[in-house]
Design a protein around this nucleic acid. Structure first.
Length: 575
DNA sequence: GCCGTTTTCGGCCCGACTGTTTTCAGTCG
């Protein structure tokens, strides 16, 4: 098993956390944290970096971090981390993931209460010992309990990009089994859900299912093999991954893949449609009375039932079967996007230069790329001052004049301040081609205040797009309180677009609301929120969310040609 | 640990908010 970027990043982060708890030099801690962020954004894989010596040229990666990468690639483990694990109780490192607890508090908990695990911490939060510590109080104890509950949930669900990576790796492994012609990730992954519970895999086999399952049970790394019947089993690997495997012969693939993909609500509607047409949809086959109906693919099943084939993303039991009786929307695809917008560069917290971004986007087939670094109020991510902005504009003009790659648009991701205004003067704002306005602080406002804050910023004619509207971070932070209906109504009326932020930790606007927004007449933009070259691919997750929200290319701002995109932004300023 | 047309040593890291306080430490983005 080769080591991937995510693993390297995780190990570097772990090293940083251990050092932090030990009370080591904070700048050293920071160096490892920055290193973790940097490697995620690098192209290629760790093994390659070593062979080609790529890391020597990367700023922020020096001898220490290179040693960790080398350890991981050559030995699969880091001696530096192994040593640190001897020195710091593992429970304390876990506690750092609890929001509201930092190093100082965790150390105090450890020293004063001798607590080394999360269950012990929970007990102390319940019985009042935690609140009694100096600097702690009832609210802190309450927050700890809430955050621990969320962490628990986070271990039973995974973010879609992690689940999809895992599913595709497993599929590649299963396809090497004798007699297996295809392994297809199904379930939540195939429907493109933002959070994935269980992995489901359909194997197409030209051998009896029992034989294939027997081989799977004997695979190296299989820890548990249970819940199985003649065609299904739940397999747990030593690494902790678990997957439900369903084996089918080719003639039944259509029905089996449908059933394995779900959702329950979609299958319920489908079963009723089948019954009305005189068919029975069982777990593994389609029947007309007692006659077996072959279904080599899903399209066959839908067609037999008089329906248009329903793309997996739409199968949520939200009216798609009714729509499929006549006509389903032509859902947007990645190639419909003409522009890649919401990209950070090395001017703020991104890792690519303007010129690199233009080149990479050009190579990926985009006609334009919207650079949107953070505004100056976001100091922690190197937000741009007015001088920085003017320097970046010159850089963009030079890049466009050189004409290599996608056309670069001048944008900014401006903080929406607590009072609903942007932290820039109007003349400066006028210099941008477009403006994304986002909330980055004061999440705790009540619903009325937050709604007013956002409605107010929409009155500013420079605002083109509202970024990550609800502020959620999947599995770690709830959306803030907001009256989205009022925001949608105003967006439709004022011609402000609303973003689907494609960062797999955000995927905000939620796809369920995307459809509501569309019906309210809102234009949607798909923002990559990319901080590196690798992050540009995030946009695929955004497209998946757009599809789940029933969007066509016509609904999406950056599926339009550059002139139309710019006109959309300009129209508001001229009104 | 990383970096360097000021230094191979000595800097690097800002501001707002929260919950705890009675003037501020700790956390977070």
């Amino acid at each position: 098993m080769s080591v991937d970027r995510a693993t390297v990043a995780r190990v570097l982060d772990q090293i940083a956390s251990h050092l932090e708890l030990k009370g080591d030099n904070p700048f050293k801690v920071r160096a490892f944290r920055m290193g973790a962020r940097t490697v995620v954004g690098l192209a290629g894989e760790p093994g390659q970096w070593l062979e080609e010596g790529t890391l020597d040229q990367i700023s922020g990666i020096g001898a220490g971090i290179q040693a960790v990468v080398r350890d991981l690639v050559l030995a699969g483990r880091s001696t530096a981390l192994d040593e640190l694990r001897e020195q710091v109780p593992p429970g304390l490192v876990e506690m750092l993931r609890i929001s509201g607890l930092g190093v100082a508090k965790v150390r105090q908990i450890h020293e004063r209460l001798q607590i080394e695990s999360i269950p012990d911490l929970e007990a102390a939060a319940r019985d009042g010992r935690l609140a009694a510590l100096p600097g702690f109080g009832p609210k802190t104890a309450d927050n700890v309990l809430k955050s621990v509950a969320r962490l628990r949930q986070a271990t039973s669900f995974r973010l879609m990009h992690h689940a999809a990576d895992e599913a595709h790796q497993l599929a590649a492994g299963f396809e090497r089994l004798v007699g297996v012609t295809r392994a297809i990730p199904a379930g939540d992954v195939r429907r493109g859900l933002e959070l994935v519970g269980d992995l489901v895999m359909v194997l197409v086999a030209e051998r009896p299912a029992e034989d294939v399952l027997r081989d799977i049970a004997k695979l190296p790394g299989v820890d548990e093999f249970g819940g199985h019947d003649e065609r299904r089993a739940t397999v747990r690997f030593a690494g902790g991954e678990s997957v439900q495997v369903i084996v089918t012969p080719p003639p039944n693939l259509g029905v089996v893949l449908l059933q394995a993909t779900g959702s329950a609500a979609h299958l319920q509607d489908l079963a009723e449609t089948a019954a009305a047409a005189g068919y029975t949809l069982s777990g593994a086959a389609l029947w007309k009375g007692s006659e077996f109906v072959p279904t080599p693919d899903e399209t066959t099943v839908y067609r037999i039932l008089g329906l248009e084939p329903v793309p997996p993303e739409l199968r949520e039991g939200r009216g798609e079967i009714d729509a499929a009786r006549t006509r389903l929307p032509a859902l947007i695809v990645r190639d419909d996007l003409q522009g890649l917008i919401h990209c950070h560069t090395s001017y703020s917290d991104g890792s690519s230069s303007v010129r690199d971004l233009a080149r990479i986007c050009g190579e990926a087939g985009y006609r334009y790329v919207g650079v949107t670094d953070h505004s100056g109020t976001a100091a922690y991510v190197g937000g741009l001052t007015e001088d920085d902005i003017r320097a970046q504009w010159r850089d963009i003009d030079d890049t466009n004049a050189a004409g290599a790659g996608a056309r670069v648009l001048k944008g900014i991701e401006a903080d929406i301040l607590a009072d609903g205004w942007l932290g820039f003067s109007d003349p400066l704002l006028d210099g941008f081609d477009f403006v994304i306005a986002s909330v980055h602080n004061r999440f705790e406002m009540n619903r009325d205040q937050m709604t007013e804050r956002i409605l107010r910023v929409m009155d500013h004619p420079a605002v083109t797009i509202l970024g990550h509207l609800t502020g959620r971070l999947l599995l770690s932070r709830d959306p803030y309180q907001l009256d989205t209906d009022r925001v949608f109504a105003k967006a439709a009326q004022t011609g402000v677009a609303i973003e689907i932020n494609a960062d797999p930790q955000r995927l905000d606007l939620d796809w369920r609301l995307v459809r509501v927004a569309k019906e309210a007449g809102v234009t949607i933009s798909i923002g990559a929120d990319a901080h590196s070259a690798a992050g540009l691919d995030n946009v695929n997750y955004g497209v998946t969310m757009a599809r789940k929200g029933w969007l066509t290319a016509a609904d999406v701002l950056n599926a339009r040609p550059v002139e139309d995109f710019l006109a959309f932004a300009r129209r508001r300023r001229q009104a």
